[in-house]
Design a protein around this nucleic acid. Structure first.
Length: 426
RNA sequence: GGAGAGAUGGCUGAGUGGUCGAAAGCGAUCGCCUGCUAAGCGAUUGUACGCCCUAAAAAGGUGUACCGCGGGUUCAAAUCCCGCUCUCUCCGCCA
């Protein structure tokens, strides 16, 4: 969420930035509620002041054995008035809060204006797209033919948008998870964490999934817990309501977790293959930084994620999301898109964002400056490093051979007992 | 699942209705002392939201709230009552 004071002082700017995102929120209601809140606050606080003063006086008089009837009479009804005003204030603040919680982050100045994905500028491209002497197959066909991806049985076990990995397919997924984690831990200096896969409502609110996006989440029956849609949620909330030390920043975490998404409203999109699943594995990078280093750290984080594709030898391009495509909480986002020859398209495989203090304010994550002084909100960043299922898809499509087999990229072989190829059975 | 104990500031820990935002200690910061370090002495040391001051901010002044969370009783609640959450101990069950 944005700073209420910032909204109050920059009402027009905020209004304009919301429009650039293609949203329309009327801030007139904000202005009105904000003013009313301060009026009520002043009234109730002066009443409280009176009550505190008189109560103290009653205490003193009683100690001396003097009468207090006149003071008691004066206080009659004051309590009720305070209570009534408190209720009014609470209602007012609740309304104000729901407006502010639904205001998206302000895009960074470097983010270009645009309506949707087609307006995202390409920042860089890497790798040479492989050429094939045969029509390259999409990964779902490769996977089913090799007997390593079984969508039909997953549908029987659970339903649509689930996958059963089998044999070397399961091993490939697991190898990728280990390869990615090791790379980020040993070469990029991240600390590994393994968080809970369910979180409470407060955590979901802290990172911005709630209150606005509840329909995208799986909720656990019986308790108010949610399955995590990304490790960003539990990992960012590690430091919720904490004051960190500046010397400890930046803090860099890497976490492998499964992710669970309801994918409401995506019917008919990406119905085949590993691209859009209700459950998928992801290795996530999360950083906590000072405000003046967060954009450098975003570049580094993005390059850490790109490094995975470079080491796997998979061509990709990196785009910067335009205002119309930017997520609710992000100030700036780079999407890394892997080349998928079987689909003849680049597909998102990682999304790296700087949230500035938007999540930190909701989650109250601060740091104490090195020289002392008041705590300052940290900047939070995260990015996929990478989405594992989509990486399996990219490996299958980029490394497919004319005989129907798939070569295992060199860097993964030590994670697969030396196996260098997935060959068709028989 | 059953029984019991607990939750107070950066940390330890006192406080069972009235000048308690909260003793004491530790830690931290500043100053003094000291050849250096240590020790010693003195001072300062929570967060949020209003208002005043300010061009604005910081600083300062002032008010209010916060002693796990939410309600209640009372002129007055860290303190009494109710509900909830979490932690610990014991018992049961269990991967």
């Amino acid at each position: 969420m944005l700073d209420i004071k910032f909204i109050r002082q920059n009402l027009d700017l905020v209004q304009e930035k919301i429009r650039a995102r293609g949203m329309d929120i009327d801030l007139a209601a904000f202005r009105e509620l904000d003013a009313r809140r301060r009026d009520i606050l002043q009234e109730v606080e002066s009443l409280r002041n009176e009550r505190n003063t008189v109560s103290r006086l009653i205490g003193e008089r009683k100690k001396k054995g003097e009468g207090v009837d006149d003071l008691m009479a004066r206080m009659a009804g004051v309590g009720d008035r305070i209570k009534a005003l408190d209720e009014e204030l609470a209602a007012c603040e609740e309304e104000l809060r729901s407006i502010v919680m639904n205001i998206p982050n302000v895009p960074h100045d470097s983010v270009v204006f645009g309506r949707g994905p087609e307006d995202n500028p390409v920042i860089r491209e890497w790798g040479e797209r492989p050429s094939f002497a045969f029509p390259p197959q999409p990964h779902w066909e490769i996977g089913e033919r090799l007997g390593i991806l079984d969508f039909a049985r997953a549908a029987k076990i659970t339903g649509a948008r689930f996958t059963l990995y089998r044999g070397l397919g399961a091993m490939l997924e697991r190898a990728l998870i280990n390869f990615m984690c090791d790379l980020h831990i040993f070469e990029h200096g991240y600390t590994e964490v393994l968080p809970p896969f369910m979180v409470n409502r407060q955590s979901m609110t802290g990172t911005g999934q709630l209150p606005k996006f509840e329909e995208d989440l799986f909720r656990v029956a019986g308790v108010d817990y949610f399955l995590i849609p990304t490790a960003e949620v539990p990992v960012t909330n590690i430091h919720r309501e904490e004051i960190l030390e500046e010397k400890d920043l930046p803090i860099k975490y890497v976490a492998y977790t499964p992710c669970f998404r309801a994918e409401a409203g995506s019917y008919g999109k990406d119905t085949r293959g590993l691209i859009r699943q209700h459950q998928f594995n992801k290795v996530e990078l999360v950083k906590f930084t000072t405000p003046d280093t967060s954009y450098e750290e975003l570049e580094l984080l993005t390059s850490d994620a790109e490094d995975v594709l470079k080491k796997l030898g998979i061509p990709f391009r990196t785009v910067s999301l335009c205002t119309g495509d930017l997520g609710f909480s992000a100030a700036k986002t780079y999407d890394i898109e892997a080349w998928m020859p079987g689909q003849g398209a680049y597909r998102e495989i990682s999304s790296c964002s700087n949230f500035e203090d938007f999540q930190a304010r909701r989650a109250q994550i601060r740091f104490r400056p090195a020289g002392g002084g008041k705590p300052i909100l940290v900047h939070t960043l995260n990015g996929s490093g990478l989405a594992v299922g989509r990486t399996v898809a990219a490996v299958l499509e980029n490394y497919q051979q004319s005989d129907g087999s798939v070569i295992i990229p060199q860097v993964l072989r030590k994670y697969m007992g030396g196996i260098d190829r997935i060959a068709p059975v028989g």
